[in-house]
């Protein structure tokens, strides 16, 4: 049998490396990595229930008696109630707006035969390579000018959270348009054509035919944007410094600062848990759907 012939080579160096050593070592490393990740997440949760002394003295032990009050301390000290509300509203509204703006644009860019479509797609993709550093200064300037302009001339009030929302949305457009354009190009056009022949206008075709077809990619960009906005820190620090305007990562950073001075580590870990666990739950819930649509957009 031919297989026995092949198997005889098991101990050749080439086979030893390519079939035994390399795969085994890698598998081992991957499992170690998995264990580390799970342990770290569990460890953070465990620390959040300890007294601050225990965090240092027995970093690996279980808490003597769970200190649920750490959560109350962290929640109050960092103003997490308003921060959680801000983060939730900004993240959901922002992610929705990003997709609402990017999806129609990506659709026409992917389908159009106009000569400008190609260069315009590239123009959006270029935004991915503009580092945030380049626009930080203008954003601070715009933030200050917009709020004084609105207060003095238009509405009589302004909320910097709106500025933050607008910039978080705009800065996420390039990546989202890029992924969606790639995905939509890979979709067959027959169903759309049939819909249009039935007399559906472009908007109806888009909403009722294209969006359902592109659901995997939509889910992916939506979830990636939710993750991105939930964790975004630099813009939040620059645009919304006031406690009631703060988002969770900014609140955590400020909690980090004040807990450091008072060495209340249990409460710090409670704060980390409040920030991290919701994302993990979301991730477990949506599971692998997150990554499914991703390559479809990026690779094809």
């Amino acid at each position: 049998m031919s297989t026995t012939v092949v198997d005889r080579g098991v101990w050749s160096p080439r086979r030893l490396f390519g079939d035994v050593l390399l795969p085994r070592a890698t598998t081992l490393a991957l499992w170690a990595w998995v264990v580390f990740n799970l342990a770290l997440v569990g460890w953070v949760g465990l620390q959040s229930l300890k007294e601050s002394g225990e965090v240092w003295i027995s970093p690996f032990g279980f808490p003597d008696s769970p200190q649920w009050s750490n959560y109350a301390t962290a929640w109050k000290a960092a103003g997490f109630s308003s921060a959680a509300l801000n983060s939730t509203v900004l993240t959901l509204l922002g992610s929705f707006l990003i997709v609402a703006l990017a999806a129609p644009a990506a659709y026409v860019l992917a389908r159009s035969t106009r000569r400008v479509a190609g260069p315009l797609t590239g123009y959006f993709a270029m935004g991915m390579s503009i580092p945030l550093q380049t626009v930080v200064i203008p954003i601070v300037v715009i933030k200050l000018s917009v709020s004084s302009f609105m207060i003095d001339w238009v509405t009589g009030w302004w909320d910097n959270r709106i500025t933050l929302l607008v910039f978080q949305v705009v800065l996420s457009l390039p990546f989202t348009v890029f992924v969606l354009t790639g995905y939509l190009r890979s979709l067959p056009t027959e169903i759309e054509e049939a819909a249009e022949l039935d007399g559906a206008g472009p908007l109806r075709t888009f909403l009722q035919v294209v969006l359902p077809l592109a659901k995997p990619a939509m889910t992916t960009v939506l979830v990636l944007n939710v993750i991105g906005l939930w964790n975004e820190t630099l813009l939040a620090l620059l645009i919304t410094p006031l406690p009631e305007e703060r988002t969770l990562p900014a609140a955590l950073l400020s909690l980090y600062g004040s807990m450091q001075y008072s060495s209340d580590w249990g409460a710090l870990f409670a704060g980390i848990t409040i920030l991290v666990y919701p994302m993990i739950v979301l991730y477990l819930w949506l599971g692998r759907r997150i990554v499914e649509g991703m390559t479809a957009g990026i690779g094809k």
Binding site: V140, L144, S145, S147, S148, L237, L238, P241, L242, P243, E244, A250, L253, S254, G257, S258
Partner: peptide, 20 residues
């Protein structure tokens, strides 16, 4: 009065210069 914490005043000079 608002307690913005140590990080909250990072941009203070810029905002003051802008009259805000």
């Amino acid at each position: 009065v608002k307690f913005v914490g140590r990080k909250g005043n990072d941009n203070l000079a810029t905002e003051m210069a802008a009259g805000q």
